[in-house]
């Protein structure tokens, strides 16, 4: 556990989101009555912080995959649509067939993986810009989901599928455990193998990687496929939570929250160094921010504004111009 947790980059990227989270929690402690009221019912915890974790899990699960894609210098806008597709497939299998639960899970994951693979092929083989390549599926994906559900909202009473997101284990909701396990597994996978170094190298300078014999296309392809798989998992969680598959609204605008979580977590949109723990912290931060606004009666129409301001602040802090100015100001301050 020591070698893959490289302290230096991880610490610096975690510092910002954790500090912001602490500020937000402090604000809620002072100004949001009942924010920390947690009660135990039927061996499950209820309360605002638990709600936040539950919702943040969905963002976090996708953010783990998105972190790898962004590390390669790409982006995946289609994750929201892939959530809808995976949810639709899971719901259809659960209601229309006798498929065992593991098969339902596998089908959702596979659908996500295939969708990610399509994105990856567009990016690596056809050399489309990632933002354009994944925009295709972002738009088309909901259509695919509609085709699967025949334009209906599929509700289900499948025992295992509906309990997935609505049960707790050791006080935490299952989705939170899924997110934590996924992040740990991905951390191990990338840092214990050479995948992490290749992802960062490809995102930093893919030409130099090709010259060094790194199969940069395979690395990118794998990142997109993995991200798609994560979106499939999130789709499963989402449809389990509402016990229905809604092709129109499942995962709607999820991609924005996810990208924001990754960027807040310290992974630069231009690729290179990445931090999975940072993305987790970013996901919790965003959900806390959203929840805080709801609790202070900020209407849903206005709610995106503070998020936009957060994005702006992060991007400004990451811009090389600002970084140079800041470091110049610091060095001038020194004797």
């Amino acid at each position: 556990m020591t070698s893959f947790l490289r302290p230096r980059p991880a610490l610096t990227s975690l510092a910002w989101p954790l500090a912001a989270l602490a500020l937000l929690v402090l604000f809620n402690l002072l100004f949001t009555p009942g924010f920390f009221n947690i009660e135990l019912r039927d061996a499950r915890l209820f309360g605002t912080p638990i709600d936040i974790l539950n919702h943040a899990s969905k963002v976090a699960i996708v953010a783990v995959g998105m972190t790898l894609v962004i590390a390669t210098g790409g982006v995946d806008l289609s994750v929201g649509a892939v959530v809808a597709i995976a949810g639709a497939i899971a719901a259809m299998l659960a209601t229309r067939t006798q498929a065992p639960f593991p098969l339902v899970v596998l089908a959702a994951l596979a659908a996500g993986g295939v969708a990610g693979l399509c994105n990856g092929v567009l990016v690596t083989r056809l050399r489309l810009q990632p933002i354009v390549a994944t925009l295709v599926l972002m738009v088309a994906g909901r259509g695919v989901a509609q085709l699967i559900t025949d334009g209906l909202i599929i509700t289900f009473e499948h025992r295992e599928l509906s309990s997935l997101a609505n049960t707790s284990f050791a006080l935490l909701p299952i989705p939170a455990w899924i997110a934590i396990a996924l992040a740990l597994a991905t951390g191990l996978l990338t840092r214990r193998t050479a995948a992490g170094m290749f992802l960062e190298a490809v995102g930093d300078n893919d030409r130099a990687c090709r010259y060094a014999g790194v199969n940069d296309r395979a690395i990118k392809l794998a990142a997109y496929a993995f991200c798609g798989g994560c979106a499939g998992l999130a789709g499963l969680v989402e449809c389990s939570y509402i016990k229905a598959a809604d092709a129109n609204n499942a995962g709607l605008f999820l991609e924005l929250d996810v990208i924001l979580a990754v960027v807040i977590g310290g992974t630069s949109l231009s690729g290179g160094r990445f931090s999975i723990s940072g993305s987790l912290a970013g996901a919790v931060l965003i959900q806390t921010l959203t929840k805080t606004m709801y609790m202070h009666d900020v209407s849903a129409d206005v709610a995106p504004l503070p998020k936009a301001i957060a994005v702006l602040a992060v991007c400004v802090l990451q811009s090389p111009v600002v970084k140079d100015r800041v470091s110049a100001a610091f060095s001038r301050g020194r004797p």
């Binding site: 050479a194 960062e200 930093d204 990687c209 060094a212």
Partner: peptide
């Protein structure tokens, strides 16, 4: 443009081709 991977460490840059081969 074609040689260094700028923000990776000296060590990672040195090991890149060997690791790619492995």
């Amino acid at each position: 443009a074609d040689g260094i991977v700028p923000s990776l460490s000296v060590r990672e840059n040195i090991l890149l081709a060997l690791q790619a081969r492995l």
